[in-house]
Design a protein around this nucleic acid. Structure first.
Lengths: 261, 261
DNA sequence: ACCTTTATGTTGGATGTGCAACAAATCTGT
DNA sequence: ACAGATTTGTTGCACATCCAACATAAAGGT
Protein backbone atom coordinates (compact mmCIF):
# COMPACT_ATOMS: atom_id res chain seq x y z
CA UNK A 1 0.00 0.00 0.00
CA UNK A 2 1.19 3.50 -0.59
CA UNK A 3 2.81 5.69 1.95
CA UNK A 4 0.51 8.26 3.43
CA UNK A 5 1.10 11.43 1.43
CA UNK A 6 1.05 14.98 2.58
CA UNK A 7 0.99 16.49 6.01
CA UNK A 8 -2.73 15.78 6.46
CA UNK A 9 -3.06 13.39 9.37
CA UNK A 10 -5.84 10.88 9.06
CA UNK A 11 -8.72 11.07 11.44
CA UNK A 12 -9.89 8.15 13.46
CA UNK A 13 -12.67 7.22 11.10
CA UNK A 14 -10.37 7.35 8.09
CA UNK A 15 -7.83 5.15 9.77
CA UNK A 16 -10.53 2.65 10.60
CA UNK A 17 -11.60 2.53 6.98
CA UNK A 18 -8.02 2.13 5.86
CA UNK A 19 -7.41 -0.70 8.27
CA UNK A 20 -10.45 -2.53 7.01
CA UNK A 21 -9.44 -1.93 3.42
CA UNK A 22 -6.04 -3.37 4.13
CA UNK A 23 -7.64 -6.43 5.61
CA UNK A 24 -9.72 -6.87 2.50
CA UNK A 25 -6.60 -7.31 0.47
CA UNK A 26 -4.42 -9.24 2.88
CA UNK A 27 -5.36 -11.62 5.65
CA UNK A 28 -3.24 -9.97 8.30
CA UNK A 29 -1.80 -6.59 9.15
CA UNK A 30 0.70 -5.66 11.83
CA UNK A 31 0.30 -2.91 14.31
CA UNK A 32 3.74 -1.50 13.61
CA UNK A 33 3.22 -1.65 9.88
CA UNK A 34 0.09 0.45 10.10
CA UNK A 35 1.59 2.79 12.64
CA UNK A 36 4.41 3.79 10.34
CA UNK A 37 2.04 3.92 7.37
CA UNK A 38 -0.36 6.26 9.12
CA UNK A 39 2.35 8.18 10.89
CA UNK A 40 0.85 7.55 14.31
CA UNK A 41 1.91 5.66 17.39
CA UNK A 42 1.47 1.96 17.75
CA UNK A 43 -0.77 2.67 20.70
CA UNK A 44 -3.17 4.59 18.50
CA UNK A 45 -3.37 1.76 16.01
CA UNK A 46 -3.84 -0.64 18.89
CA UNK A 47 -6.76 1.42 20.14
CA UNK A 48 -8.22 1.55 16.64
CA UNK A 49 -8.02 -2.20 16.39
CA UNK A 50 -9.63 -2.64 19.77
CA UNK A 51 -12.53 -0.51 18.62
CA UNK A 52 -12.91 -2.40 15.38
CA UNK A 53 -12.68 -5.70 17.16
CA UNK A 54 -15.47 -4.70 19.52
CA UNK A 55 -17.59 -3.93 16.50
CA UNK A 56 -16.70 -7.35 15.16
CA UNK A 57 -15.04 -5.98 12.05
CA UNK A 58 -11.72 -7.67 12.62
CA UNK A 59 -10.01 -10.17 14.85
CA UNK A 60 -7.10 -9.13 17.00
CA UNK A 61 -3.93 -11.14 17.19
CA UNK A 62 -0.67 -10.62 18.98
CA UNK A 63 1.08 -7.89 17.05
CA UNK A 64 -1.68 -7.25 14.56
CA UNK A 65 -5.12 -8.16 13.37
CA UNK A 66 -6.75 -10.58 10.98
CA UNK A 67 -9.78 -10.16 8.81
CA UNK A 68 -12.96 -11.74 9.99
CA UNK A 69 -14.07 -13.87 7.11
CA UNK A 70 -15.99 -11.48 4.92
CA UNK A 71 -19.70 -11.82 5.39
CA UNK A 72 -19.30 -13.84 8.53
CA UNK A 73 -22.22 -13.35 10.83
CA UNK A 74 -21.38 -11.21 13.73
CA UNK A 75 -24.14 -12.40 15.97
CA UNK A 76 -23.13 -13.25 19.44
CA UNK A 77 -22.97 -16.98 19.16
CA UNK A 78 -20.59 -16.75 16.22
CA UNK A 79 -18.03 -15.34 18.55
CA UNK A 80 -18.42 -17.91 21.27
CA UNK A 81 -16.09 -20.83 21.43
CA UNK A 82 -18.83 -23.31 22.19
CA UNK A 83 -20.91 -22.34 19.21
CA UNK A 84 -17.96 -22.73 16.92
CA UNK A 85 -17.31 -26.17 18.30
CA UNK A 86 -20.93 -27.15 17.81
CA UNK A 87 -20.93 -25.87 14.26
CA UNK A 88 -17.86 -27.91 13.59
CA UNK A 89 -19.53 -31.06 14.86
CA UNK A 90 -22.54 -30.29 12.78
CA UNK A 91 -20.46 -29.63 9.69
CA UNK A 92 -18.60 -32.90 10.20
CA UNK A 93 -21.82 -34.85 10.32
CA UNK A 94 -23.07 -33.19 7.17
CA UNK A 95 -19.79 -33.62 5.32
CA UNK A 96 -19.97 -37.33 6.03
CA UNK A 97 -23.18 -37.44 4.00
CA UNK A 98 -21.35 -36.40 0.85
CA UNK A 99 -19.61 -39.01 -1.22
CA UNK A 100 -17.14 -38.80 -4.06
CA UNK A 101 -18.86 -37.89 -7.28
CA UNK A 102 -21.88 -36.26 -5.69
CA UNK A 103 -23.42 -33.09 -7.05
CA UNK A 104 -24.77 -30.73 -4.44
CA UNK A 105 -26.11 -27.24 -3.83
CA UNK A 106 -24.97 -25.25 -0.82
CA UNK A 107 -26.83 -22.38 0.70
CA UNK A 108 -25.15 -19.27 2.14
CA UNK A 109 -24.77 -19.19 5.91
CA UNK A 110 -22.26 -19.57 8.68
CA UNK A 111 -23.12 -23.17 9.41
CA UNK A 112 -23.00 -24.23 5.79
CA UNK A 113 -19.70 -22.40 5.55
CA UNK A 114 -18.16 -24.61 8.18
CA UNK A 115 -19.62 -27.56 6.31
CA UNK A 116 -17.95 -26.36 3.12
CA UNK A 117 -14.61 -25.96 4.91
CA UNK A 118 -14.72 -29.50 6.16
CA UNK A 119 -15.74 -30.73 2.73
CA UNK A 120 -12.76 -28.94 1.22
CA UNK A 121 -10.49 -30.31 3.88
CA UNK A 122 -11.72 -33.85 3.35
CA UNK A 123 -11.00 -33.37 -0.35
CA UNK A 124 -14.28 -34.94 -1.32
CA UNK A 125 -14.63 -35.04 -5.09
CA UNK A 126 -17.78 -33.02 -5.48
CA UNK A 127 -19.52 -30.61 -7.84
CA UNK A 128 -21.10 -27.83 -5.85
CA UNK A 129 -23.40 -25.02 -6.88
CA UNK A 130 -23.72 -22.16 -4.44
CA UNK A 131 -24.90 -18.60 -4.13
CA UNK A 132 -22.35 -17.80 -1.43
CA UNK A 133 -19.09 -16.20 -2.52
CA UNK A 134 -17.31 -17.36 0.58
CA UNK A 135 -18.38 -20.93 0.19
CA UNK A 136 -17.35 -20.80 -3.44
CA UNK A 137 -13.92 -19.54 -2.49
CA UNK A 138 -13.45 -22.00 0.32
CA UNK A 139 -14.57 -25.04 -1.56
CA UNK A 140 -12.77 -23.88 -4.68
CA UNK A 141 -9.50 -24.25 -2.83
CA UNK A 142 -9.96 -27.96 -2.81
CA UNK A 143 -8.33 -29.40 -5.89
CA UNK A 144 -10.97 -32.09 -6.11
CA UNK A 145 -14.02 -29.85 -5.92
CA UNK A 146 -15.67 -28.20 -8.88
CA UNK A 147 -17.56 -25.04 -7.99
CA UNK A 148 -20.27 -23.31 -9.95
CA UNK A 149 -21.43 -19.92 -8.81
CA UNK A 150 -24.93 -18.66 -9.29
CA UNK A 151 -25.45 -15.09 -10.51
CA UNK A 152 -27.57 -12.41 -8.92
CA UNK A 153 -27.66 -9.25 -6.86
CA UNK A 154 -24.87 -9.13 -4.35
CA UNK A 155 -25.84 -8.93 -0.69
CA UNK A 156 -22.83 -7.57 1.17
CA UNK A 157 -23.91 -8.52 4.68
CA UNK A 158 -24.00 -12.16 3.71
CA UNK A 159 -21.45 -12.20 0.89
CA UNK A 160 -23.99 -13.96 -1.25
CA UNK A 161 -26.14 -13.34 -4.29
CA UNK A 162 -29.91 -13.43 -4.24
CA UNK A 163 -32.84 -12.50 -6.41
CA UNK A 164 -34.81 -13.75 -9.35
CA UNK A 165 -31.71 -14.28 -11.45
CA UNK A 166 -30.27 -16.54 -8.80
CA UNK A 167 -33.36 -18.71 -8.60
CA UNK A 168 -33.75 -18.87 -12.37
CA UNK A 169 -30.17 -19.99 -12.73
CA UNK A 170 -30.49 -22.70 -10.10
CA UNK A 171 -33.50 -24.10 -11.95
CA UNK A 172 -31.14 -25.11 -14.76
CA UNK A 173 -29.39 -27.71 -12.60
CA UNK A 174 -30.38 -30.95 -10.95
CA UNK A 175 -28.28 -32.26 -8.09
CA UNK A 176 -28.15 -35.17 -5.68
CA UNK A 177 -28.66 -33.12 -2.55
CA UNK A 178 -28.84 -29.61 -1.17
CA UNK A 179 -27.34 -28.48 2.15
CA UNK A 180 -29.18 -25.58 3.72
CA UNK A 181 -28.98 -23.57 6.86
CA UNK A 182 -31.82 -21.73 8.56
CA UNK A 183 -32.46 -19.13 11.22
CA UNK A 184 -35.41 -20.89 12.81
CA UNK A 185 -36.94 -24.31 13.18
CA UNK A 186 -40.31 -24.62 14.86
CA UNK A 187 -43.60 -26.40 14.47
CA UNK A 188 -44.39 -23.79 11.81
CA UNK A 189 -41.52 -25.23 9.76
CA UNK A 190 -38.17 -23.87 8.65
CA UNK A 191 -37.91 -20.10 8.56
CA UNK A 192 -35.27 -17.58 7.59
CA UNK A 193 -34.50 -14.02 8.63
CA UNK A 194 -32.52 -12.70 5.69
CA UNK A 195 -34.71 -11.25 2.98
CA UNK A 196 -34.15 -13.07 -0.27
CA UNK A 197 -32.59 -16.20 1.17
CA UNK A 198 -35.79 -18.15 1.53
CA UNK A 199 -36.53 -17.98 -2.19
CA UNK A 200 -33.03 -19.27 -2.98
CA UNK A 201 -33.38 -22.07 -0.45
CA UNK A 202 -36.68 -23.13 -1.94
CA UNK A 203 -35.20 -22.99 -5.44
CA UNK A 204 -32.40 -25.29 -4.29
CA UNK A 205 -34.83 -27.70 -2.68
CA UNK A 206 -36.78 -27.99 -5.91
CA UNK A 207 -33.68 -29.07 -7.84
CA UNK A 208 -32.36 -31.59 -5.36
CA UNK A 209 -32.97 -35.29 -4.92
CA UNK A 210 -32.41 -35.02 -1.19
CA UNK A 211 -32.67 -32.11 1.15
CA UNK A 212 -30.44 -31.70 4.22
CA UNK A 213 -30.97 -28.92 6.74
CA UNK A 214 -28.09 -27.96 9.03
CA UNK A 215 -29.66 -26.33 12.06
CA UNK A 216 -28.09 -26.17 15.49
CA UNK A 217 -30.20 -26.56 18.61
CA UNK A 218 -30.18 -22.86 19.46
CA UNK A 219 -32.55 -22.33 16.54
CA UNK A 220 -35.15 -24.78 17.83
CA UNK A 221 -38.45 -23.15 18.62
CA UNK A 222 -37.66 -19.98 16.70
CA UNK A 223 -39.90 -18.73 13.94
CA UNK A 224 -38.53 -16.02 11.66
CA UNK A 225 -40.24 -13.85 9.11
CA UNK A 226 -39.71 -15.76 5.87
CA UNK A 227 -41.11 -19.22 5.32
CA UNK A 228 -38.75 -21.76 3.81
CA UNK A 229 -40.30 -25.19 4.19
CA UNK A 230 -42.91 -27.17 6.10
CA UNK A 231 -41.57 -29.86 8.37
CA UNK A 232 -42.56 -32.72 6.07
CA UNK A 233 -40.42 -31.14 3.33
CA UNK A 234 -37.30 -31.07 5.47
CA UNK A 235 -36.01 -34.53 4.59
CA UNK A 236 -32.88 -34.67 6.73
CA UNK A 237 -32.10 -32.57 9.77
CA UNK A 238 -28.50 -32.42 10.93
CA UNK A 239 -28.15 -30.94 14.39
CA UNK A 240 -26.17 -31.07 17.60
CA UNK A 241 -28.99 -31.88 20.02
CA UNK A 242 -32.23 -33.79 19.69
CA UNK A 243 -35.35 -31.62 19.46
CA UNK A 244 -37.84 -32.03 22.28
CA UNK A 245 -41.53 -31.79 22.95
CA UNK A 246 -44.03 -30.95 20.26
CA UNK A 247 -41.33 -30.09 17.73
CA UNK A 248 -39.83 -33.57 18.06
CA UNK A 249 -43.24 -35.11 17.57
CA UNK A 250 -43.99 -33.02 14.50
CA UNK A 251 -40.62 -33.89 12.98
CA UNK A 252 -41.39 -37.57 13.49
CA UNK A 253 -44.81 -37.08 11.93
CA UNK A 254 -43.19 -35.30 9.00
CA UNK A 255 -40.89 -38.26 8.41
CA UNK A 256 -37.77 -36.20 9.02
CA UNK A 257 -34.53 -38.13 9.36
CA UNK A 258 -32.52 -36.67 12.22
CA UNK A 259 -28.74 -36.95 12.36
CA UNK A 260 -27.00 -36.22 15.66
CA UNK A 261 -23.44 -36.56 16.96
CA UNK B 1 -11.98 -26.00 19.66
CA UNK B 2 -11.72 -29.31 21.36
CA UNK B 3 -8.76 -30.36 23.48
CA UNK B 4 -6.49 -33.02 22.09
CA UNK B 5 -7.64 -36.29 23.64
CA UNK B 6 -5.65 -39.26 24.74
CA UNK B 7 -1.95 -39.77 25.30
CA UNK B 8 -1.29 -40.30 21.60
CA UNK B 9 1.06 -37.58 20.42
CA UNK B 10 0.36 -36.26 16.99
CA UNK B 11 2.85 -36.77 14.24
CA UNK B 12 4.09 -33.97 12.10
CA UNK B 13 1.71 -34.59 9.27
CA UNK B 14 -1.26 -34.76 11.62
CA UNK B 15 -0.31 -31.50 13.26
CA UNK B 16 -0.04 -29.86 9.88
CA UNK B 17 -3.50 -31.04 8.97
CA UNK B 18 -4.86 -29.85 12.30
CA UNK B 19 -3.30 -26.44 11.87
CA UNK B 20 -4.84 -26.05 8.44
CA UNK B 21 -8.16 -27.26 9.72
CA UNK B 22 -8.06 -24.68 12.47
CA UNK B 23 -7.32 -22.00 9.93
CA UNK B 24 -10.27 -23.08 7.86
CA UNK B 25 -12.51 -22.41 10.82
CA UNK B 26 -10.87 -19.28 12.21
CA UNK B 27 -8.86 -16.60 10.50
CA UNK B 28 -5.95 -16.74 12.92
CA UNK B 29 -4.28 -19.12 15.31
CA UNK B 30 -1.57 -18.50 17.86
CA UNK B 31 1.58 -20.46 18.24
CA UNK B 32 1.14 -20.85 21.98
CA UNK B 33 -2.48 -21.86 21.59
CA UNK B 34 -1.59 -24.69 19.26
CA UNK B 35 1.42 -25.69 21.31
CA UNK B 36 -0.66 -26.32 24.41
CA UNK B 37 -3.39 -27.93 22.32
CA UNK B 38 -0.99 -30.38 20.70
CA UNK B 39 1.11 -30.82 23.80
CA UNK B 40 4.31 -29.83 22.03
CA UNK B 41 6.73 -26.95 22.31
CA UNK B 42 6.12 -23.61 20.73
CA UNK B 43 9.25 -24.18 18.70
CA UNK B 44 7.75 -27.24 17.13
CA UNK B 45 4.63 -25.39 16.16
CA UNK B 46 6.75 -22.59 14.85
CA UNK B 47 8.64 -25.03 12.68
CA UNK B 48 5.38 -26.53 11.47
CA UNK B 49 4.15 -23.12 10.50
CA UNK B 50 7.36 -22.34 8.69
CA UNK B 51 6.94 -25.48 6.65
CA UNK B 52 3.34 -24.71 5.83
CA UNK B 53 4.17 -21.17 4.94
CA UNK B 54 6.83 -22.31 2.51
CA UNK B 55 4.22 -24.45 0.86
CA UNK B 56 1.98 -21.41 0.68
CA UNK B 57 -0.74 -22.96 2.79
CA UNK B 58 -0.80 -20.24 5.43
CA UNK B 59 0.61 -16.83 6.18
CA UNK B 60 2.82 -16.31 9.17
CA UNK B 61 2.28 -13.45 11.55
CA UNK B 62 3.97 -12.41 14.72
CA UNK B 63 2.83 -14.90 17.33
CA UNK B 64 0.78 -17.04 15.02
CA UNK B 65 -0.49 -17.57 11.52
CA UNK B 66 -3.37 -16.49 9.34
CA UNK B 67 -5.22 -18.32 6.66
CA UNK B 68 -4.18 -17.38 3.20
CA UNK B 69 -6.92 -15.18 1.96
CA UNK B 70 -9.13 -17.37 -0.19
CA UNK B 71 -8.43 -16.45 -3.78
CA UNK B 72 -5.77 -13.94 -2.94
CA UNK B 73 -3.23 -13.57 -5.67
CA UNK B 74 0.30 -14.33 -4.80
CA UNK B 75 1.97 -13.59 -8.06
CA UNK B 76 5.24 -11.84 -7.72
CA UNK B 77 4.36 -8.27 -8.59
CA UNK B 78 1.35 -8.40 -6.30
CA UNK B 79 3.74 -8.59 -3.41
CA UNK B 80 6.00 -5.78 -4.52
CA UNK B 81 5.55 -2.44 -2.91
CA UNK B 82 6.36 -0.39 -5.99
CA UNK B 83 3.89 -2.19 -8.18
CA UNK B 84 1.20 -1.63 -5.62
CA UNK B 85 1.87 2.08 -5.62
CA UNK B 86 1.64 2.22 -9.41
CA UNK B 87 -1.56 0.24 -9.39
CA UNK B 88 -2.97 2.66 -6.92
CA UNK B 89 -2.25 5.60 -9.22
CA UNK B 90 -3.69 3.74 -12.12
CA UNK B 91 -6.81 2.82 -10.21
CA UNK B 92 -7.27 6.40 -9.15
CA UNK B 93 -7.17 7.61 -12.73
CA UNK B 94 -9.67 5.00 -13.79
CA UNK B 95 -11.99 5.67 -10.87
CA UNK B 96 -12.11 9.31 -11.91
CA UNK B 97 -13.67 8.21 -15.19
CA UNK B 98 -16.73 6.85 -13.42
CA UNK B 99 -19.56 9.17 -12.56
CA UNK B 100 -22.57 8.80 -10.34
CA UNK B 101 -25.25 6.76 -12.02
CA UNK B 102 -22.93 4.93 -14.41
CA UNK B 103 -23.31 1.26 -15.19
CA UNK B 104 -20.06 -0.62 -15.70
CA UNK B 105 -18.52 -4.02 -16.08
CA UNK B 106 -15.33 -4.90 -14.25
CA UNK B 107 -12.94 -7.63 -15.21
CA UNK B 108 -11.10 -9.84 -12.72
CA UNK B 109 -7.52 -8.89 -12.03
CA UNK B 110 -5.26 -7.31 -9.48
CA UNK B 111 -5.25 -3.90 -11.14
CA UNK B 112 -9.00 -3.77 -11.56
CA UNK B 113 -9.28 -4.85 -7.94
CA UNK B 114 -7.47 -1.76 -6.80
CA UNK B 115 -9.72 0.25 -9.10
CA UNK B 116 -12.78 -1.30 -7.45
CA UNK B 117 -11.42 -0.57 -4.01
CA UNK B 118 -10.98 3.08 -4.84
CA UNK B 119 -14.40 3.20 -6.41
CA UNK B 120 -15.88 1.80 -3.21
CA UNK B 121 -13.90 4.22 -1.12
CA UNK B 122 -15.02 7.18 -3.24
CA UNK B 123 -18.61 6.00 -2.73
CA UNK B 124 -19.45 6.50 -6.37
CA UNK B 125 -23.07 5.56 -7.07
CA UNK B 126 -22.54 2.86 -9.61
CA UNK B 127 -24.03 -0.38 -10.87
CA UNK B 128 -21.28 -2.86 -11.54
CA UNK B 129 -21.31 -6.28 -13.14
CA UNK B 130 -18.28 -8.43 -12.53
CA UNK B 131 -17.00 -11.98 -12.76
CA UNK B 132 -14.56 -11.47 -9.89
CA UNK B 133 -15.67 -12.54 -6.44
CA UNK B 134 -13.17 -10.30 -4.74
CA UNK B 135 -14.20 -7.27 -6.70
CA UNK B 136 -17.82 -8.05 -5.97
CA UNK B 137 -17.11 -8.24 -2.26
CA UNK B 138 -15.00 -5.11 -2.19
CA UNK B 139 -17.36 -2.96 -4.19
CA UNK B 140 -20.37 -4.44 -2.45
CA UNK B 141 -19.15 -2.91 0.79
CA UNK B 142 -19.92 0.50 -0.59
CA UNK B 143 -23.44 1.46 0.38
CA UNK B 144 -23.88 3.35 -2.88
CA UNK B 145 -22.78 0.60 -5.21
CA UNK B 146 -25.01 -2.07 -6.63
CA UNK B 147 -23.17 -5.23 -7.58
CA UNK B 148 -24.29 -7.96 -9.91
CA UNK B 149 -22.28 -11.13 -10.10
CA UNK B 150 -21.98 -13.22 -13.20
CA UNK B 151 -22.29 -17.00 -12.89
CA UNK B 152 -19.88 -19.61 -14.15
CA UNK B 153 -17.17 -22.08 -13.27
CA UNK B 154 -15.08 -20.94 -10.36
CA UNK B 155 -11.38 -20.42 -10.97
CA UNK B 156 -9.70 -20.57 -7.58
CA UNK B 157 -6.36 -19.05 -8.58
CA UNK B 158 -8.10 -15.88 -9.68
CA UNK B 159 -11.17 -15.95 -7.45
CA UNK B 160 -13.31 -15.41 -10.51
CA UNK B 161 -15.80 -17.24 -12.65
CA UNK B 162 -15.27 -17.99 -16.31
CA UNK B 163 -16.75 -20.06 -19.06
CA UNK B 164 -19.61 -20.08 -21.51
CA UNK B 165 -22.17 -19.40 -18.81
CA UNK B 166 -20.32 -16.29 -17.77
CA UNK B 167 -20.20 -14.89 -21.29
CA UNK B 168 -23.83 -15.78 -22.00
CA UNK B 169 -24.90 -14.02 -18.86
CA UNK B 170 -22.93 -10.88 -19.64
CA UNK B 171 -24.64 -10.69 -23.03
CA UNK B 172 -27.88 -9.92 -21.22
CA UNK B 173 -26.64 -6.54 -20.02
CA UNK B 174 -25.64 -3.28 -21.67
CA UNK B 175 -23.46 -0.85 -19.77
CA UNK B 176 -21.81 2.52 -20.20
CA UNK B 177 -18.27 1.26 -19.93
CA UNK B 178 -16.11 -1.73 -19.12
CA UNK B 179 -12.86 -1.64 -17.13
CA UNK B 180 -10.46 -4.39 -18.05
CA UNK B 181 -6.97 -5.46 -17.10
CA UNK B 182 -4.57 -7.39 -19.26
CA UNK B 183 -1.33 -9.31 -19.03
CA UNK B 184 0.21 -7.91 -22.19
CA UNK B 185 -0.01 -4.92 -24.52
CA UNK B 186 2.01 -4.97 -27.71
CA UNK B 187 1.66 -4.12 -31.38
CA UNK B 188 -0.18 -7.41 -31.68
CA UNK B 189 -2.87 -5.96 -29.41
CA UNK B 190 -4.08 -6.77 -25.92
CA UNK B 191 -3.35 -10.28 -24.74
CA UNK B 192 -4.09 -12.31 -21.65
CA UNK B 193 -2.37 -15.23 -19.94
CA UNK B 194 -5.17 -16.76 -17.89
CA UNK B 195 -7.16 -19.30 -19.83
CA UNK B 196 -10.79 -18.30 -19.99
CA UNK B 197 -10.31 -14.64 -19.16
CA UNK B 198 -9.97 -13.43 -22.73
CA UNK B 199 -13.44 -14.67 -23.68
CA UNK B 200 -14.94 -12.88 -20.69
CA UNK B 201 -13.10 -9.67 -21.55
CA UNK B 202 -14.33 -9.80 -25.11
CA UNK B 203 -17.87 -10.45 -23.91
CA UNK B 204 -17.66 -7.41 -21.69
CA UNK B 205 -16.33 -5.27 -24.53
CA UNK B 206 -19.24 -6.24 -26.73
CA UNK B 207 -21.77 -5.03 -24.15
CA UNK B 208 -20.12 -1.72 -23.32
CA UNK B 209 -20.46 1.74 -24.81
CA UNK B 210 -16.88 2.55 -23.93
CA UNK B 211 -13.91 0.34 -23.25
CA UNK B 212 -11.17 1.20 -20.75
CA UNK B 213 -8.05 -0.88 -20.40
CA UNK B 214 -6.01 -0.57 -17.20
CA UNK B 215 -2.51 -1.70 -18.07
CA UNK B 216 0.63 -0.66 -16.23
CA UNK B 217 3.82 0.04 -18.14
CA UNK B 218 5.47 -3.24 -17.13
CA UNK B 219 3.10 -5.00 -19.52
CA UNK B 220 4.14 -2.93 -22.53
CA UNK B 221 5.70 -4.99 -25.27
CA UNK B 222 4.48 -8.29 -23.84
CA UNK B 223 2.39 -10.67 -25.90
CA UNK B 224 0.63 -13.48 -24.08
CA UNK B 225 -1.10 -16.54 -25.38
CA UNK B 226 -4.73 -15.44 -25.59
CA UNK B 227 -5.85 -12.64 -27.86
CA UNK B 228 -8.21 -10.10 -26.33
CA UNK B 229 -8.40 -7.11 -28.66
CA UNK B 230 -6.65 -5.36 -31.52
CA UNK B 231 -5.26 -1.94 -30.74
CA UNK B 232 -8.01 -0.05 -32.57
CA UNK B 233 -10.57 -1.74 -30.32
CA UNK B 234 -8.90 -0.58 -27.13
CA UNK B 235 -10.71 2.72 -26.82
CA UNK B 236 -9.09 4.11 -23.68
CA UNK B 237 -5.80 3.06 -22.16
CA UNK B 238 -5.14 4.01 -18.55
CA UNK B 239 -1.52 3.57 -17.57
CA UNK B 240 1.28 4.94 -15.43
CA UNK B 241 3.80 5.67 -18.17
CA UNK B 242 3.52 6.66 -21.82
CA UNK B 243 4.20 3.89 -24.31
CA UNK B 244 7.16 4.43 -26.60
CA UNK B 245 8.35 3.55 -30.07
CA UNK B 246 6.29 1.51 -32.46
CA UNK B 247 3.69 0.68 -29.85
CA UNK B 248 3.02 4.37 -29.25
CA UNK B 249 2.64 4.94 -32.97
CA UNK B 250 0.27 2.02 -33.39
CA UNK B 251 -1.84 3.21 -30.48
CA UNK B 252 -2.09 6.64 -32.08
CA UNK B 253 -3.03 5.02 -35.39
CA UNK B 254 -5.66 2.98 -33.63
CA UNK B 255 -7.21 6.14 -32.17
CA UNK B 256 -6.57 5.03 -28.59
CA UNK B 257 -7.12 7.65 -25.93
CA UNK B 258 -4.29 7.43 -23.40
CA UNK B 259 -4.75 8.58 -19.82
CA UNK B 260 -1.64 9.12 -17.69
CA UNK B 261 -0.95 10.55 -14.23
C1' DA C 1 -12.70 32.52 24.04
C1' DC C 2 -13.54 28.99 27.51
C1' DC C 3 -14.20 24.49 29.31
C1' DT C 4 -15.19 19.70 28.52
C1' DT C 5 -14.63 15.74 26.03
C1' DT C 6 -12.15 12.99 23.22
C1' DA C 7 -8.09 11.51 20.83
C1' DT C 8 -3.25 10.82 20.73
C1' DG C 9 1.52 10.56 22.51
C1' DT C 10 4.87 8.96 26.00
C1' DT C 11 6.87 6.14 29.24
C1' DG C 12 8.36 1.92 31.73
C1' DG C 13 7.94 -2.55 33.12
C1' DA C 14 5.70 -7.19 32.42
C1' DT C 15 5.02 -10.56 29.19
C1' DG C 16 5.16 -12.87 24.64
C1' DT C 17 7.71 -14.04 20.69
C1' DG C 18 11.65 -15.23 17.48
C1' DC C 19 15.94 -17.15 16.71
C1' DA C 20 19.95 -19.97 16.98
C1' DA C 21 22.64 -23.56 18.79
C1' DC C 22 22.78 -27.67 20.89
C1' DA C 23 20.93 -31.92 23.29
C1' DA C 24 17.72 -35.56 23.46
C1' DA C 25 14.46 -38.44 21.48
C1' DT C 26 12.45 -40.73 17.68
C1' DC C 27 12.26 -42.74 13.18
C1' DT C 28 14.25 -45.54 9.26
C1' DG C 29 16.48 -48.82 6.66
C1' DT C 30 19.62 -52.48 6.81
C1' DA D 1 20.47 -54.01 17.06
C1' DC D 2 22.88 -50.46 14.91
C1' DA D 3 24.12 -45.98 12.65
C1' DG D 4 22.49 -42.03 10.46
C1' DA D 5 18.81 -38.99 9.51
C1' DT D 6 14.98 -36.59 11.11
C1' DT D 7 12.25 -34.58 14.54
C1' DT D 8 11.54 -32.48 18.85
C1' DG D 9 12.92 -30.33 23.30
C1' DT D 10 15.75 -27.01 25.91
C1' DT D 11 17.97 -22.96 26.89
C1' DG D 12 19.38 -18.13 26.74
C1' DC D 13 19.00 -13.87 24.81
C1' DA D 14 17.45 -10.17 21.68
C1' DC D 15 13.54 -8.07 20.47
C1' DA D 16 8.47 -7.00 19.84
C1' DT D 17 4.35 -6.40 21.87
C1' DC D 18 1.00 -5.36 25.46
C1' DC D 19 -0.91 -2.75 29.12
C1' DA D 20 -1.83 0.85 32.27
C1' DA D 21 -1.17 5.38 33.80
C1' DC D 22 -0.34 9.85 32.88
C1' DA D 23 0.69 13.91 29.85
C1' DT D 24 -0.36 16.46 25.90
C1' DA D 25 -2.96 17.86 21.98
C1' DA D 26 -7.02 18.35 19.31
C1' DA D 27 -12.00 18.73 18.66
C1' DG D 28 -16.70 20.27 19.94
C1' DG D 29 -20.11 22.84 22.24
C1' DT D 30 -21.89 26.93 24.75
Amino acid sequence: MEQQTGPHRLKKRERHDQILLHLKLRPHVRVTELATLFGVTTETVRRDMDDLEQRGLLERAHGGASATHPGAHRDLDERRQERVAEREHLGRLAAALVQDGDTIMIDAGSTTMVFARLLAFAETRVTAITNSLQIGMILGQSARARVILAPGSYLPQEAAVVGVETCDYLARYHVDACFLGAAGLSEAGVTEAVEGFSAVKRAMMRQSGACRFLIDASKFGLTRLNHVARLHEVGTLVSDRAPEGALAQDLRDGGVEIILP
